[in-house]
């Protein structure tokens, strides 16, 4: 069995995402060792209120990602409204104001696919509640590159379309409710070998 640790987490969500992130992020301890990047769909004119709010209720630092900022552990990075968020080979962020993907900017697929290329099997991808199919293609790419895929249970998700679309697009490793996802992430971050199934 290959021996390696997970090195990063990417998450994507849309409708209902604020409530979902309010549940997951405060449940992650300050010592959580993996950097997290999140795309939450929102109005392109939105300010950084969401990051500030989540930062106030989470042990981890939550902030909007800036161009060329290093993707560092101990921090949760949110895609700024109106920008696609991508990860470069040197594990820094780059932003773009390219055309919308899946009617969205930021698009979950852009983050997931660029992260999959950088982290391969050391990446955990999470698709949460949402009313749009964005993220399905990205999660499929993460799986194709050997990463670990988690999808929120569509039955208990505030909006089931996005998690259901992800499940239809690719086999995944875990389906869970929000509280389970938080503890699963902590568990994944603690294992040094890929023995999540053990």
């Amino acid at each position: 069995m290959e021996s390696f640790a997970y090195r990063a987490v990417v998450m994507g969500t849309s409708a209902g995402g604020m409530q979902a992130l309010k549940t997951i992020l405060p449940a992650l301890p300050e010592s959580f060792p993996l950097p997290i990047a999140i795309v939450q769909h929102m109005q392109e004119s939105a300010d950084d209120f969401l990051a500030e709010y989540l930062n106030g209720i989470s042990p981890l630092t939550v902030k909007e990602a800036e161009d060329k900022e290093p993707f560092s552990p101990g921090t949760v990075y949110l895609a700024p409204a109106g920008y696609h968020l991508l990860i470069e080979a040197d594990q820094t962020f780059s932003l773009s104001v390219d055309v919308r993907e899946n009617y969205c900017c930021p698009a979950i697929d852009a983050l997931f696919e660029s992260a999959a290329e950088v982290f391969g099997e050391a990446l955990i991808g999470v698709v949460l509640t949402g009313a749009n199919g964005d993220g399905s293609h990205g999660l499929k790419t993460i799986k194709a590159r050997g990463g670990f895929a988690i999808v929120q249970n569509p039955v208990t998700a505030e909006s089931d379309y996005m998690p259901a679309a992800a499940l239809a697009a690719t086999p995944v490793d875990r389906v869970g409710d929000l509280e389970q996802i938080a503890s699963l992430l902590v568990h994944c971050s603690e294992v040094s070998e890929k023995n999540i199934y053990g």
Partner: peptide
């Protein structure tokens, strides 16, 4: 160019 966004544009 920043490789990640360049690759997406080229793919498109």
């Amino acid at each position: 160019y920043a490789q990640a966004s360049l690759k997406r544009r080229l793919t498109r």
